[in-house]
């Protein structure tokens, strides 16, 4: 599904990622953890196609294609979804309109007809229950005036509607209180299928209590310094990042 090979990335001549290797197969849930400044955000930005990063070495292959050569919208149409750490507010564009436009752009790419307005409404109303959001959020402007938790729920709602092949969740747990964390985790779990893969980027272990990863990787100083099963996350929580940083050195 996703294959990152020896990825080196610079931001303004400063090396941030220094040889990241990661392979995600269909249906797998991977978590990347790491201390501040390890390069977590850079990794998610590179995957999303955000400008301002220079790849100096290595490659990223998504579903057999060169991901880094694809425009952000093409990545989305090919089934990649990025849940933002800080979703932007877009005054004047309603949530439901954005979601319909996004779904139709995907469908057009797949050679399908546009979704019927009534069918779409049924779909959205079904999915919004999963996130335990009020229907009024559909008609509000995208993220405008939403609380931190509402924004994160809204991201997962979009994922539920777009049904991606690969979900990259960038710090989705940050800004969530414990109740919202449970709801979002439950929704993520319900999206898990044998084919759909997840990459969770997170600073803390707590979300991994609810969304059990198959693999946990520790990113430190631009490299993956340790990989393991879910037990690695617990060990990290207990011993702190200095433990792996010390081992790597």
């Amino acid at each position: 599904m996703l294959n990152i090979e020896n990825l080196h990335v610079n931001v303004a001549d400063k090396a941030i990622l220094k040889g990241v290797n990661l392979q995600i197969k269909p249906g797998e849930v991977h978590a990347i953890m790491g201390p501040n400044g390890a390069g977590k955000s850079t990794l998610s930005h590179i995957l999303s196609g955000k400008a301002g990063y220079t790849v100096t070495q290595g490659k990223v292959t998504y579903a057999g294609k060169d991901l880094l050569a694809m425009e952000p919208e093409l990545r989305a149409r090919e089934g990649m979804f990025l849940a933002f750490q800080y979703p932007v507010e877009i005054p004047g564009v309603s949530n439901i309109y954005l979601m319909k436009a996004a779904l139709n752009a995907n469908r057009k790419h797949q050679g399908l007809d546009e979704v019927d307005a009534m069918d779409f409404l049924t779909l959205v109303k079904d999915k919004i229950k999963l996130l335990q959001m009020d229907e009024k959020f559909l008609y509000r402007a995208v993220n405008e005036g939403f609380s931190g938790g509402e924004k994160k729920r809204n991201e997962i709602l979009q994922a539920a509607i777009l049904e991606p092949k690969l979900c990259v969740l960038d710090e989705t747990d940050s800004g969530l209180d414990i109740d919202a964390l449970k709801i979002v985790s439950k929704a993520i779990n319900s999206l898990r299928t044998e084919q759909r893969s997840f990459l969770m980027i997170t600073h803390y272990q707590r979300m991994l209590d609810y969304v059990k990863p198959d693999f946990v990787h520790v990113l430190a100083d631009g490299r993956i310094v340790k990989s393991g099963g879910p037990e690695l996350a617990l060990e990290l929580e207990e011993k702190g990042y200095q433990w792996v940083e010390g081992e790597a050195a």
């Binding site: 990545r75 979703p87 877009i90 004047g92 564009v93 436009a101 996004a102 995907n106």
Partner: peptide, 20 residues
Amino acid sequence: FYLKSRAIDEETARNMLTFA
């Protein structure tokens, strides 16, 4: 960028924001 990451092409994204 947010709209593009939701599969929407650049021109449509600009139109949407201008319209808004």
